[in-house]
């Protein structure tokens, strides 16, 4: 993987002209606001069971009622309310995972890229070893052993998804290590830590932002998959993956039950990816692997 360090000029203006960025930013922004405001904007308690009104279709479909815009699930819980709380879970998992894995990966990558030699060999080895571990399987196994919980999902994904951060941090650090301003800071007697934190980190941050979007998308997808398999976020929390799993039994009779949370998941991940793609185009970060 190669990464070219290109300074952004007129970055903001070019971003706004990029349709992908505008769409992606809108999707992510709206989801974020909805997630934050969840307790105030949900029409119902997402956990309130109403066995009389089960599997009510969305209001725009036949037999739908205006009371439940997106219908109700198999326990009569309001789908829209659950969906909004589900956005919360996805966003928290996505962001927390990116922070955890970002710290691990960036640290390793900068160390390897900056010091080179043996240190770099070790970092490369860790990256290779990490890539050979099947993420979903190990995450499921750990959850199976320790019992699934919200925190565990974040920890496991955070500990597993740092590889791309490390790869990008390493190659960008290598590129700018030899540049004049780094050498200058070096010669001016700055300590190693200060060179790494003040000179290197800010200059590779934009490229790490691209990785962050991709990893966030991946983390959201993986959380949904783990929850779908019953070893992610535990019920009754309304994770979108769990909602799909719970609706699975009814999908042959009322397909909308899996369409609603699935589309929400797809759109959010698409939005995050659109955002990442726009950033990548702008920065020229090449992430093919």
């Amino acid at each position: 993987m190669s990464v070219t360090v290109v300074p952004g000029t007129g970055a903001a203006r070019r971003l706004l002209r990029n349709i992908g960025f505008v769409v992606g930013a809108t999707i992510v922004g709206v989801t974020l606001i909805v997630a934050i405001l969840a307790p105030w904007i949900t029409p119902y308690d997402p956990f309130a069971v109403d066995l009389v009104h089960r599997l009510v279709p969305p209001s725009f479909m036949e037999d739908g009622t205006p009371a439940n815009f997106l219908g109700t699930d198999q326990l009569g819980r309001d789908y829209l309310s659950r969906l909004i709380y589900g956005a919360r879970i996805s966003m928290i998992i996505g962001i927390a995972t990116v922070i955890t894995s970002g710290i691990i990966g960036t640290t390793l990558g900068i160390l390897g890229g900056f010091y080179g030699g043996r240190m770099d060999d070790v970092v490369m080895f860790l990256i290779t070893a990490r890539l050979s571990i099947p993420v979903v399987l190990v995450a499921l196994a750990v959850a199976g052993l320790l019992g699934s919980s919200f925190i565990l999902v974040i920890l496991v994904l955070g500990l597993l998804l740092w590889d791309r951060f490390a790869v990008v941090a390493r190659s960008t650090t290598m590129q700018i290590r030899t540049l004049d301003y780094v050498s200058a800071a070096w010669c001016a007697g700055s300590s190693q830590a200060s060179v790494l934190l003040r000179e290197i980190l800010p200059n590779i941050a934009t490229h790490l932002a691209v990785v962050a979007t991709l990893e966030m998308a991946l983390a959201i997808l993986l959380e949904a998959a783990l929850s779908f398999l019953g070893l992610g976020v535990p019920a009754p929390l309304p994770s979108w993956g769990l909602m799909i799993a719970e609706a699975k039994e009814y999908m042959f009779f009322t397909p909308w039950v899996i369409l609603v949370p699935g589309i929400a998941l797809f759109v959010l991940v698409l939005g995050v990816n659109l955002l990442g793609d726009a950033l990548r185009d702008l920065l020229g970060t090449d992430l093919n692997r």
Binding site: A224, L229, G241, I244, F252, I258, L259, L270, L274
Partner: peptide, 22 residues
């Protein structure tokens, strides 16, 4: 490519089961 990247695999599987299978 973007759509493929954003598609939750398990969900796509269910959709195909309903559509192609049923």
């Amino acid at each position: 490519a973007l759509i493929g990247q954003a598609m939750p695999s398990f969900w796509l599987g269910l959709i195909l089961m309903v559509w192609l299978g049923l």
